[in-house]
Design a protein around this nucleic acid. Sequence first.
DNA 1: AGGGGTAATTGATCAAAATCAACAGTGCGG
DNA 2: CCGCACTGTTGATTTTGATCAATTACCCCT
Lengths: 232, 232
Amino acid sequence: MRSADLPEVRSIHLFQDMEEATFDAILKAAYFQTFPDHVDLIQEGDPADFLYVVVEGCVELFATSNDRETTMAMVPPIGTFILAATLKDAAYLMSARTCQRSRILMIPSEDIRAALKKDKAFAAAIIWELASCYRAVVKEHKSLKLRTGVERLANRLLRYHNDQGRNGSLLLPHDKRTLASLLGMAPENLSRAFNTLKPFGVKVDGARIHLDNLPALETLAKPNALIDDRTI
Amino acid sequence: MRSADLPEVRSIHLFQDMEEATFDAILKAAYFQTFPDHVDLIQEGDPADFLYVVVEGCVELFATSNDRETTMAMVPPIGTFILAATLKDAAYLMSARTCQRSRILMIPSEDIRAALKKDKAFAAAIIWELASCYRAVVKEHKSLKLRTGVERLANRLLRYHNDQGRNGSLLLPHDKRTLASLLGMAPENLSRAFNTLKPFGVKVDGARIHLDNLPALETLAKPNALIDDRTI
DNA sequence: AGGGGTAATTGATCAAAATCAACAGTGCGG
DNA sequence: CCGCACTGTTGATTTTGATCAATTACCCCT
């Protein structure tokens, strides 16, 4: 892999506390590859041979059943995916595809499992990461069960707005089809949900969204730290 | 705690491989208490002071937002809950209440965290447990996003039927209101969903359900191992 | 600049699910 | 035994969201 990426990979939570020797061993076993846009990386049901790290680009995790498909999560750099399947040596529950040209680090699952047995700090980091992933899905699940589509969109906009500096405007990080699927609605309904939010100061200009009446939007959204705050 | 319960607690996956000394230390720090029916054990947002183990009875995990409430999971004996919050020393994302008279083991979170630092086997068990919990929520989430209410019910019935010996009949483990909330639907819609399933051989007699046409039900349900099989 | 393809929007319609209201069945306590 | 509370069921209605169809807007490409 490019040596310039090394410190970045090392700096993510999962790897930062591990011993130098463990990190070296893992990197030695790993593959580093660049994929074009829209390439399938893994398919749900397949055995979890690798842990994936997105170094550049972006990866969509999605799931399928009954000819229906839904986006489960988007993984930006530097992020890992399907840690749980890797650790349990089980089948992937989600499929993954690139949604941009992406540089991906692939670490054989058995090397991950070997490393965590040897390296206490790595085991601790994995526990932390798994607990965080678990809580993230629980929050998603709560959102879907407790909120309407419009409310989910409103809160998602507030989240992006926070992430991007709270300056009254935000850029959607994914295209609207993907956002719709992520929020659990049809693309058409996302359009309509944006219209519903217009009286609450939400102006849409392509991927650029302006929030002109934050108090009104927050009144409608009723954001809840135990759903929307990803830091807890 | 009653010495008769000890082997049972010890036998669950989370505790079975840990060192004797670690188990003793944890038990010494733990509280063991019996609660009546319908007692609130924890409230979402509270700091995770304890890891809970249901030894007898049953506990409902639920979440709230906007004056709405939904059942997230039911924890039968012998099961633990809110492990992730305990490990991250974070706020609970879910509330818990007994739904029967229940005997509960409460282990201070700091003792859990101390134990996993000392005991490698315990750390490994926690990783396994967390990965399993994560995958369980992912499956729930997939079910909710990819299936209609009737489909979720059909698959849930097939699951209970499998658990209870595949003999053409099953007993609902919870009351119908709870089941409805668990499946993400209103109680009225659960009733109607049962009616929808009548032509597929589903006969309802209180909590006793008869499945008289398994092939037909399976055709409708389209069970999917990556959603419905809790063993993978 | 023109053309082709994709994403997004809009409208119309349909299906799914929530809500409101009423009522039957059950179990409990007086 | 009766009334009361609770669960579950049914019907009517509304809301929400999905689907189908058509159109528009926007890129990208040469």
